[in-house]
Structure formats: C-alpha cells, structure tokens
C-alpha cells in the first residue's frame, strides 16, 4: 500500500509537471526571455551570476566563468538537453516533488479521498489550498519576478519564502480543518504574520525591465501555477481514491 500511495502521487506529479512546460511556453517563458534582454543593462545571465557567486568561494568564480563561457557559445543548457529539455526535466522533478509533498500533507492530515466525483473535488480543493500556500501567499510580499529585476539578498528571500509557505500551510490547515475558533484565529495570524514581518526588499527599486512585462509576468505566473496545482490536486485525488485500502504494503 505504501508503494502504491507513493506511485499514485508520483504519477499525478509527472502528468501535471509535463503539462506545465507547454503552459509556461505560452505564458511565462516568452516574458522571461524578453526580460533577459534588459537584464543587467544587456549582459547575459551568466555574467550576472558570476559576480554573485564569486562572493561565496573560489569555486564560485570558476562556476560563474563556466556559465559565462556557456552563454558565449550560445548554449543555455547545463545538462546538454537545451533550454527546452532542461525546463521539461525541471518541471517533471518539480511536479513529482510538489505531488509527493501534497500527498504527504493529505496522508498525514488524514484527508480521505472517496471514489468517484467526491475524491476528485477534494483533490481540487487540496490543490487550490496548496496554490494559496505556495504561490499566492508568498506573492503578497514577494511577487514572482522576471530576470533583470532589482533583488534583495537571495538567501534572505529564500528563507522568508520557505517560512511563509510553511506558516501559510499550517495557518490554512488550522483555519479550514479545525473547528475551534481559537485555532482559526491562530491560523489567520500565522498566514498574516510573515507579511507584517515583511519580505526582504532591495533598497533601489529602479529597473530597466518595462513595468508592463513585470505586471504581465506576475499575473502569468499565478495563472499557470493555478492551472498546475488544480491539475495536480485533481489527479492526486483521483489516483489516491483508487489505491485499495485493504492491500498490504
């Protein structure tokens, strides 16, 4: 049963991850490519990275130089698959990872998926909840950004992002699945807290990337990820409802 539960999550994640690549090529990646033309006043991506990685260690300089060399050759791929191939692979891994985490939340929180339509609808609701926690809640204070935007320190933003996703998930669980009013109030407080604390914001907000690209990108990112999470949640609900309950591991 354990293996079948994991395989059900994996299947849902790989299908949703596969569907994400065409969605990104329609909505987000054209905007990323347009924005890259403005990045660092026209530098390529590797050149920007090499300056930031050189702060870390000596190896960072070498890696940055490699990345720049790759860009000079006009080869965007680090794995030899080309930019499209890399993105397909990354989306499959991301889909599988998000699906396993979503399945883990459902299994540990004891959310059951009845067969048929009810399981599908519960899956969709779970996917929508995950979209709120992973995409919408962090974007209140740290909107999805195209390359070439002014950035605060990467580690600070990643830390804030992980804490916000975690607190939003706990908050939403308390708000939606706990009957006590004090638990619900605590849930709201957990969801709001990281935004009162504040996300890391760069001191200089000026950018050469046109504002239109940025606003179109934020909307496109939220729209494509909503598609991903609803598809993932629906598939997960459907597949998990079909795992036989009595079967041994």
């Amino acid at each position: 049963m354990i293996v079948r539960l994991l395989l059900a999550a994996l299947a849902a994640g790989l299908i949703a991850g596969m569907a994400m690549t065409p969605a990104q090529y329609v909505k987000t990646i054209p905007l990323i490519m347009q924005a890259e033309a403005y990045e660092g006043g026209g530098h390529d991506h590797g050149a920007v990275e090499s300056t930031s990685s050189s702060v870390d260690a000596g190896t960072g300089v070498a890696q940055g130089a490699d990345a720049r060399a790759a860009h000079d050759r006009g080869d965007d791929s680090m794995l030899g698959l080309g930019r499209l191939g890399d993105t397909v692979l990354a989306n499959l891994v991301a889909g599988a990872g998000f699906a396993l985490i979503l399945a883990a939340v459902a299994l540990i929180a004891g959310i059951e998926f009845p067969a048929g339509r009810d399981g599908l609808i519960r899956g969709l609701v779970l996917g929508a909840g995950a979209w709120f926690c992973v995409q919408l809640a962090p974007s209140f204070s740290l909107p999805p950004a195209v390359p070439g935007f002014p950035y605060a320190d990467l580690g600070d933003r990643q830390g804030w992002w992980m804490i916000t996703v975690g607190l939003s998930a706990i908050g939403l669980w308390l708000l939606a699945l706990r009957p006590e009013w004090i638990a619900r109030a605590l849930g709201v407080a957990l969801i709001v807290a990281p935004h009162i604390w504040g996300a890391p914001v760069p001191e200089d907000l000026s950018s050469e990337v046109p504002a239109y690209l940025a606003s179109a990108y934020a909307a496109a990112s939220l729209a494509t990820t909503l598609f991903f999470w609803l598809l993932l949640g629906g598939l997960l609900g459907h597949f998990l409802s079909r795992v036989p309950e009595e079967q041994a591991a």
Binding site: Q24, Q63, M78, R83, Q158, W161, T224
Partner: peptide, 17 residues
C-alpha cells in the same frame, strides 16, 4: 550553479526566489 541554470525558467515560473 548547474541546478540553477537548468531549472532557471522553472524557478522563475513558479515564483521561487
């Protein structure tokens, strides 16, 4: 660096920092 470059478009599209 390798993972970043390979997953670059995916990271941006999902709104990862």
């Amino acid at each position: 660096q390798t993972l970043h470059d390979a997953a670059h478009d995916t990271r941006h599209s999902y709104g990862f920092p």
